Amino acid sequence: MTDPVPPSVRERRLARELREARVGAQLTGDRAARELGWSASKVSRIETGRIGVNAADLDRLLALYAVPERHAEFLRRLAPAARARGWWDAYAESLSPGYAGLLRLEAGSRALRTYCAVVPHALLMTPHYIRRVITATWQVPPPAEVERRVRVCLRRQAVLGDGRTGADAALAFTAVLDEAVLRRALGPADDPIAEPARVEQLRHLMTVSRWPAVSLRVLPFSAGIPPVSAGSFSLLESRATGAPDVVYLENKTRISFVDGEKEVDRYVRDVGMLLSMALSEDDSVGFLDEIASGRR
């Protein structure tokens, strides 16, 4: 049995807003539960973010608390962004709480901006590159587990849409790719598959860069030292608020989330500086092509 997924920053915000609305209406949790015909524990779990709240229940809470319509509309937008449901629920028994939470956050986001320092972001990887990342460890998973992780990662990439998906229907994705990402070999020189797989990945990046919702920028070595020395990070922007609200740091063993307002703001500034240092979109595609063709 998997551990319960901890509430995300968005779930905690919705929970806090509903708790404050109840207190503002001068109702106790027990009184609110009686008025709605619920158990007191249901109100408590909603207010602690342990469970989500569906649209019908949310409307009942908003009516009971007499929440002004403008704020009520904001909370209605926040609710689906807080606890999005989707294909990953079918993998609930095999996903870690952190990874499941990440998938929900991405699905509930309007935009993602990322800095890739070592490898491409998971949303940009080819199947072969994903397998190489999974197996680049002293404890290689069994083949069936490797393929399960590949399938999950490829399903995750659906948030970007494809070349035919309109920009407004997909996650707005901006990536700054360090030149080291583009030049890193996928295996030793005598591995006959490593170099073709690297070139395939570069060509895939060039293809994805033409998708309406995707912007790829290369940070060349010549740009100097980036403002971030601790590695890759990703910044998510909420659909409900239209503002960045959570940063995640993803590696093989765990996913860390940063949601303090001041800390998130530092990453927002870092992204801005990285974009100012990176090549333009057109120059980045040319850079990718030159590396893939062996001309650079």
Rank of each mutant, 00 (worst) to 15 (best):
E200W: 07
S44G: 11
D289H: 09
G187M: 05
S109C: 09
L14Y: 03
P4V: 00
R76K: 03
S39L: 09
R50W: 10
R34T: 08
R83N: 11
K252T: 11
P141C: 04
H204T: 05
S229F: 11
M1V: 14
S280W: 04
A243E: 15
F74D: 10
R254D: 14
V246L: 07
M206N: 01
L64R: 10
G24H: 04
A136V: 04
E47H: 06
T2E: 10
V146D: 00
I134S: 11
R217H: 15
I225A: 14
A180M: 06
A100C: 09
R45H: 12
A194L: 02
P97G: 08
V208W: 01
R16C: 05
F221D: 06
L112H: 01
L235Y: 12
R149E: 06
E17T: 08
I130L: 01
R155V: 08
E263L: 15
R31V: 15
S96L: 04
R104C: 14
G52Q: 00
L75P: 08
R296W: 09
E250F: 08
L216P: 14
L249C: 07
V146R: 05
R31E: 15
R239Q: 14
R164N: 11
W38V: 05
V176D: 00
G163H: 04
M1C: 13
A63P: 14
I130Q: 00
V258E: 07
V246I: 10
C116L: 10
A194E: 01
R164Q: 15
A40Y: 09
R156T: 06
K42T: 05
A117W: 06
D89C: 10
A84I: 03
S41R: 04
D89N: 10
P196D: 04
V119Y: 04
S44Y: 13
